[in-house]
Design a protein around this nucleic acid. Structure first.
Lengths: 327, 327
DNA sequence: CCCAAATATGCAACCGTTTCCATATGAGTT
DNA sequence: AACTCATATGGAAACGGTTGCATATTTGGG
């Protein structure tokens, strides 16, 4: 591998001159530039980014922590995030934490090790302490971590309210709501609270089913929904995240229920795979692209040290009327 | 940020001794070790990985190139891949190329820049030349690139054959097959060939629909399938990848077709979101976890320079009988 | 008691860049 | 002619580690 010294030698100039030529900084004569270009060409020289990184103390990498990539919401989020990172000159590193142990601290280490410059975390860790101690570029996706860590999320309360109103409008009597583990401190909790509050205000019975922490695979969802359905076959309304809503619909249909006649379903998230299913789901769609862009914007600002003011960015979700509530 | 010199100074030893203590190489006395540990603790010292990388000429990062992360197959693949990489001590960088331009060369640069040590590419580029020139750690997922670049894929021919036989068994007369852009040189082409060959051998009419290159979003699929359905409402069998199969089923159901009575559908890929839909899809499931593990194994071997023999790893897919072919 | 081997350590060189600084040249000004 | 100032350049120091080498010091066997 040819280094900058080889280029300098071949071009008959000093390394400093080569470096200035490459980076277009300082003074370099036309003559020298030409010789350097020729030498670089001849040696197939490409600057070693490792060395640059060391000097600059920058890796140009942003990490994203998610429970699992294989979940439409996170997959879509990461997709948009990578786009935005790329646009801003950053690379994207992924870290999934859905394993036995809680791997978060390991990933946080990467910040101190200068492997990554910032972290966007969509992980619902239980041991939050570690984050609080660090004063480093961290942005949370839909999760409260600490006062100094900005959060990007949607207005869950509104989403919960809209879902509740829609089910009320459709005349539901007994509604199931699937919510994530309560020990997780997330803005999403407001969604369930508001959803249930509004329904109960209207005197509608609600049955909530708390999911296990950090489990979001389809096999688990199928197990939960079919079991739930067996216990509560008379439920006539349901609210849950995309895959869960799909899974519940499946459990119901397998048992001969008609959608939306016998059961109304509203899905939360509205990832785009939902557009491929029949019947068209009534959904509360999160603006995933915007979430991702905002998260990247915030983390880049943190990295640059500019604009540290933003604390909580709350975006609006969209209600999409489909055919799973009524026709 | 405290450096190794600070630790050395505080501990009253040389930097070499500190380095040896940290890395557990060479001789370090108990006494020195204790002092160093204390100093590291006091200074909250963590080795700068950037500096280590430079010396070792290793970044510890493997990149994965995909058209889009937001597609269940790739999302699942990346998920397992990240797991396996992590297990082997590598970080995972993602690069999506589903943008206007063909960004592959940019990402290939990362190898030369020493940003990543290896690349697993699931991208269906058109300009293959660049790969061929490079003799670097590259592994292709389901795609032929060049003689020196190993491929990990499934036995598509068998998958195509099974799907065809199933549709024959169900008595289809006119079958639709959606296939990726023909200009892509991928092992998957064998699937369509075999599928159509077997059907035509039985005298069954086939209509093939070629998809645009590098388009795999649901909106596009919906557009394609609804248009196709309008043109060919009398088709009674269909074969396509997961989302496409879902989208097609949706188009059919929206037009009052009964599944599987009026139309038989077989999905290829079998990502796990498919387990959440009703009716249960008849599928050819790719062993995504194994694909990912094999791809990582190969790339790591290439990086280490051990075992450069493997050229083409071909895994078996699984036929899963669901209720979209018959009950 | 002596010498080889094992243990222990500090210092300098190195990894491949970037940037600072000292120095040089030539053009334009007074 | 002397003095700026812009242009141009090479070499050294720095980034923060790791490792080779020279040099103790200790240990143990004959």
């Amino acid at each position: 591998m040819a280094g900058i010294k080889d280029v300098a030698k071949l071009a008959g100039v000093g390394v400093g001159t080569v470096s200035r030529a490459i980076n277009d900084t300082g003074y370099v004569s036309q003559e020298a530039k030409a010789k350097i270009d020729a030498a670089m060409e001849e040696l197939h020289y490409i600057p070693n980014e490792l060395a640059r990184n060391l000097y600059r103390k920058k890796s140009g990498i942003i990490a994203v922590l998610v429970p699992t990539i294989s979940h439409p919401f996170f997959a879509e989020f990461i997709n948009y995030m990578e786009l935005e990172c790329h646009e801003r000159g950053y690379k994207t590193m992924i870290c999934s934490t859905e394993r036995e142990k809680n791997y978060e601290s390991e990933y946080l280490q990467m910040l101190r090790q200068h492997i990554v410059e910032g972290i966007i975390t969509g992980v619902h860790s239980l041991d939050v302490q570690e984050y609080l101690e660090i004063d480093m570029p961290i942005v949370a996706l839909d999760r409260f971590i600490g006062d100094n860590i900005p959060v990007v999320s949607v207005d869950h309360r509104q989403g919960g309210m809209r879902a509740a109103r829609e089910l009320i409008r459709c005349g539901c009597h007994k509604v199931a709501v699937f919510q994530e583990a309560k020990k997780v401190h997330s803005p999403a909790q407001a969604r369930y609270e508001e959803f249930m509050r509004v329904l109960e205000e209207s005197g509608i019975e609600t049955i909530s089913c708390e999911l296990e922490w950090n489990k979001s695979d389809v096999a688990y969802f199928n197990q939960v929904t079919s079991e739930f359905f067996r216990k509560h076959p008379d439920v006539d309304g349901m609210f849950g995240t995309d895959l869960l809503a799909l899974s519940y619909m499946k459990a119901a249909q397998e048992n001969g229920k008609k959608i939306p006649e016998d059961l109304k379903i509203i899905a939360y998230d509205g990832t785009d795979i939902m557009d491929a299913v029949y019947p068209r789901m009534t959904m509360i769609r999160q603006p995933i692209e915007k979430l991702a862009k905002e998260a990247v914007r915030l983390i880049v600002h943190r990295i640059d040290g500019t604009n540290l003011l933003d604390k909580h960015i709350e975006l609006e979700s969209t209600f999409i009327k489909g055919n799973t509530t009524d026709n």
